[in-house]
Design a protein around this nucleic acid. Structure first.
Length: 205
DNA sequence: TGAAGGATTTGT
DNA sequence: CAAATCCTTCAC
């Protein structure tokens, strides 16, 4: 019998499914960021949104451009974009290569306080990465990661749910909530946002 | 070549 | 509710 590692990294093949299937499955997974200086920041994913090709809210809805090119890459590609001129948003590309779809990571619950966090934020540690813009600020994610691949030990990767998390989910000790997405001007009716019920780290209450 | 607006966050 | 702030997209 092979020994069981507590954390197993997510492989591209596991992400090669519809974004609407992957998005809820990513809740409970751990996002791991390795800074240029080698420091590791880990966060439990507690909120995601799915974006699909036939979805008017999806950046890849109209056509392939320089900006959204990463969304058409193979599953496991990192798609980062700048919003409102000051915040970055992190997406994990899903489905087959050539299909413009991805999952937006909206919030993570940090395992530790990352470097550079302001005292005002540290007062509420669970809110430091509550929201897509704040998440990227805390994990120092910017356009330099756009188009790169998730890769264990490199800049960014994902680890599967712990057996404890999966067990709690099966026992209904914890639950996922599915509802509509946030901040859109189109496709507002699609129930493609998921979050961990009762998590203090989701972007909105 | 220019104007409009955005998968956000924060403070008034 | 409006500002901050800049890149992308689309119209002229």
């Amino acid at each position: 019998m092979k020994s069981i590692a507590s954390q197993q990294s997510v492989q591209p093949a596991w992400l090669a499914r519809l974004s609407t299937e992957v998005a809820p499955d990513l809740i409970g997974c751990t996002l791991v960021r390795r800074l240029p200086d080698g420091q590791i920041i880990r966060g439990l994913i507690v909120e995601t949104e799915a974006y699909a090709p036939d979805d008017p809210a999806c950046h890849a809805y109209r056509k392939r451009t320089a900006r959204n090119a990463a969304m058409f890459g193979r599953s496991g590609t990192i798609y980062v974009y700048l919003i409102y001129g000051m915040y970055h948003c992190l997406n994990i590309v899903t489905d087959k290569e050539g299909v413009g779809s991805a999952v937006l990571i909206r919030a993570v619950q940090l395992q530790s306080i990352p470097p550079g966090s302001e005292p005002r934020q540290v007062a509420k540690p669970h809110r430091i990465a509550a929201g897509p813009g704040k998440l990227c600020r805390a994990l120092q994610i910017d356009l330099s990661l756009n188009g790169q691949d998730l890769h264990p030990g490199k800049s960014l990767w994902l680890e599967h749910r712990s057996s404890q998390f999966q067990q709690d989910l099966n026992n209904k000790a914890i639950a996922l909530v599915q509802t509509t997405r946030i901040g859109l001007s189109a496709g507002t009716e699609k129930p493609w946002r998921w979050y961990l019920a009762n998590s203090p780290a989701v972007s909105i209450f």
